[in-house]
């Protein structure tokens, strides 16, 4: 048969590609929680859960329908999935909001901060709220805009849920955490709440990073921008841009900084049974330079050595015997 070995090679190639690509993964399901105040909150969601709301106008004695300010819409599904799912709206907001139209002075009510509830509470000792507060105070955001920039800027009061600590899926954590930053850094409307400056274009500012899309899907902004702290899970000390990580090898090397940040709680042993360095990195992504296989390394050195040895012996014999 003409060219048949070539054809066999090509078939083999096709089969390998096919089997390699025909495996996919399966998702998991979340558990359901039943909130205690669904009924009370329903009163607020009646208006704040929709794009439009209705009320009875006593002056004109008519039912009217109006548009809800999009920034005042609270997604009920997200709310009940959040950390503070089992709250009543009026735990954080004044009881007077039950009346409509809301009293104009209510907008001036002081909102509770995280530390008002979580400060000094042993239940949350693990989270080190005080230390986070301290780091936040020293971060660029707080440094420059201490009063306007509160924890709520990043932790949406109606949807924030912890993910880095609980999620099995690192990719989801990365998306979730990056969206927090991008909610301002990619959205001029929210950015302007804080600053009148022009919002720097994130994609352009990170031009120097090749495979940008891949990187942003596989590392969080804080990996490069926040100073890691051993006692807290998510570093909050966002540093000035001059101090951001720019050296590729900080991640792309065996002592990758990711082991101390993104993969902090997954990082267990240095080398696992299969002989991979940084196994926790490995489960989810392949970071050139950071995960190498110990045994493959040894084998490859051995194979090179053996090949060279055979070549040397052969060459030696040729010289000796042939003359």
């Amino acid at each position: 048969m003409k060219f048949s070995l070539i054809k066999k090679c090509l078939y083999l190639l096709a089969i390998m590609l096919f089997t390699a690509t025909s495996y996919t993964s399966i998702g998991q399901e979340a558990e359901k929680r039943i909130p205690d105040f669904a009924e009370e909150n329903g009163l607020c969601f009646k208006c704040h859960g929709h794009k439009t709301y209705n009320y009875y106008n006593e002056w004109t004695e008519q039912n009217v329908r109006e548009r809800m300010n999009p920034y005042f819409i609270v997604d009920s599904i997200e709310f009940y999935e959040s950390n503070h799912w089992n709250f009543q709206c009026t735990d954080c907001h004044s009881m007077d909001y039950e009346n409509f139209p809301h009293d104009g002075e209510l907008r001036m009510e002081e909102k509770p901060g995280c530390l008002d509830c979580h400060g000094g509470d042993d239940t949350y000792a693990d989270y080190h709220f005080e230390e986070i507060e301290d780091e936040f105070q020293r971060s660029v955001h707080s440094d420059k805009h201490s009063v306007d920039f509160t924890c709520w800027m990043c932790h949406n009061p109606h949807s924030y849920k912890i993910s880095a600590r609980t999620s099995e899926n690192i990719k989801e954590v990365i998306v979730y955490d990056n969206n927090i930053c991008l909610s301002c850094h990619a959205d001029i409307n929210k950015y302007q709440l804080i600053s009148d400056q022009e919002n720097p274009n994130i994609l352009e500012k990170h031009d120097w990073l090749p495979n940008q899309q891949l990187h942003f899907a596989n590392v969080r902004c804080i990996e490069c921008h926040a100073k890691t702290n051993d006692s807290i899970m998510v570093a909050h000390l966002i540093q000035p841009k001059e101090l951001a990580v720019k050296m590729c090898v900080e991640c792309h090397s065996q002592n990758s900084i990711l082991e101390a940040s993104l993969y902090k709680f997954q990082a267990r042993e240095n080398r696992n049974k299969l002989g991979f360095f940084n196994p926790s990195l490995l489960e989810n992504s392949y970071i050139i330079g950071a995960n190498r296989n110990y045994y493959l390394n040894i084998i490859s050195i051995f194979v090179y050595g053996f090949t060279l040895l055979v070549i040397l012996i052969h060459a030696f014999l040729r010289i000796i015997i042939k003359k």
Partner: peptide
């Protein structure tokens, strides 16, 4: 062009699999 790679292959990251 990593977006062309299947996200998971044999239960591990497709990029990882391809890279190895």
């Amino acid at each position: 062009y990593p977006e062309t790679i299947f996200p998971t292959v044999f239960g591990i990251s497709g990029i990882q699999f391809t890279a190895i």
